[in-house]
Simulated scan of single mutants.
Amino acid sequence: MGKILLTGATGNVGKHVATHLAESGLEVRALVRDPSRARLPDGVEVVQGDLTAPETLHPALKDVETVFLVWPGFAAETAADVVEAIAGQARRVVYLSADVADLQEGEQATIFHQDVERLIRRSGLTWTFLRPCGFATNTLGWAGQIRQGLVRWPYGEASRSLIHEKDIAAVAAHVLTSAGHGGAAYVLSGPERLTQAEQARVIGEVVGREVRWEDLPPEVAREELLAAWGDPAFVDGALRGWASFVTEPEKVTDTVRTLLGRPALTFRQWAEDHADDFR
Results as ranks from 00 to 15, higher is better:
residue 19 T to G: 00
residue 110 T to W: 00
residue 164 H to D: 15
residue 227 A to E: 14
residue 90 A to H: 09
residue 118 R to V: 00
residue 14 G to P: 01
residue 229 W to Y: 08
residue 54 P to S: 11
residue 233 A to L: 11
residue 191 P to R: 13
residue 122 R to Y: 02
residue 80 A to M: 02
residue 102 D to G: 02
residue 143 A to K: 11
residue 111 I to T: 07
residue 21 L to M: 10
residue 219 E to H: 12
residue 193 R to W: 03
residue 120 I to T: 02
residue 218 P to F: 06
residue 38 A to T: 07
residue 146 I to E: 11
residue 216 L to H: 02
residue 15 K to Q: 14
residue 247 T to W: 10
residue 212 R to P: 00
residue 53 A to N: 12
residue 69 L to W: 07
residue 77 E to W: 04
residue 27 E to C: 07
residue 243 A to M: 07
residue 270 W to V: 01
residue 29 R to Q: 13
residue 6 L to K: 10
residue 119 L to E: 08
residue 279 R to Y: 04
residue 56 T to Y: 11
residue 220 V to R: 13
residue 220 V to E: 15
residue 171 V to G: 01
residue 274 H to N: 15
residue 250 E to D: 11
residue 26 L to D: 13
residue 180 G to F: 10
residue 207 V to S: 02
residue 207 V to T: 12
residue 216 L to Y: 01
residue 40 L to M: 13
residue 110 T to D: 06
residue 103 L to N: 14
residue 224 E to Q: 13
residue 149 G to K: 10
residue 103 L to D: 13
residue 111 I to M: 00
residue 36 S to P: 00
residue 49 G to T: 05
residue 236 D to Q: 06
residue 216 L to Q: 06
residue 163 I to S: 02
residue 48 Q to S: 15
residue 83 V to S: 10
residue 119 L to W: 08
residue 20 H to W: 09
residue 103 L to E: 15
residue 20 H to D: 10
residue 33 R to K: 14
residue 182 G to C: 10
residue 151 V to L: 04
residue 109 A to I: 02
residue 215 D to V: 03
residue 214 E to R: 08
residue 84 E to V: 05
residue 86 I to T: 10
residue 189 S to Y: 09
residue 69 L to D: 09
residue 28 V to S: 12
residue 267 F to D: 08
residue 119 L to T: 04
residue 19 T to K: 11
residue 86 I to V: 15
residue 157 E to P: 00
residue 153 W to F: 15
residue 154 P to F: 10
residue 90 A to K: 03
residue 186 Y to R: 06
residue 139 T to Q: 09
residue 256 V to G: 07
residue 248 E to T: 09
residue 278 F to K: 05
residue 109 A to Q: 08
residue 117 E to S: 01
residue 9 A to E: 12
residue 266 T to F: 04
residue 80 A to C: 05
residue 126 T to R: 14
residue 5 L to A: 13
residue 234 F to Q: 10
residue 186 Y to W: 15
residue 136 A to K: 04
residue 186 Y to K: 03
residue 239 L to P: 01
residue 164 H to C: 01
residue 234 F to H: 04
residue 225 L to W: 03
residue 194 L to E: 04
residue 278 F to Y: 13
residue 8 G to F: 08
residue 67 V to F: 02
residue 143 A to H: 07
residue 21 L to A: 08
residue 173 A to I: 09
residue 217 P to L: 14
residue 107 E to I: 01
residue 195 T to V: 08
residue 140 L to W: 09
residue 74 F to K: 01
residue 134 G to N: 03
residue 46 V to I: 15
residue 191 P to S: 13
residue 97 S to T: 06
residue 32 V to N: 15
residue 136 A to G: 06
residue 276 D to R: 12
residue 240 R to S: 07
residue 168 I to F: 01
residue 261 G to N: 06
residue 255 T to F: 01
residue 102 D to Q: 12
residue 211 V to N: 05
residue 226 L to Q: 02
residue 226 L to P: 00
residue 271 A to P: 00
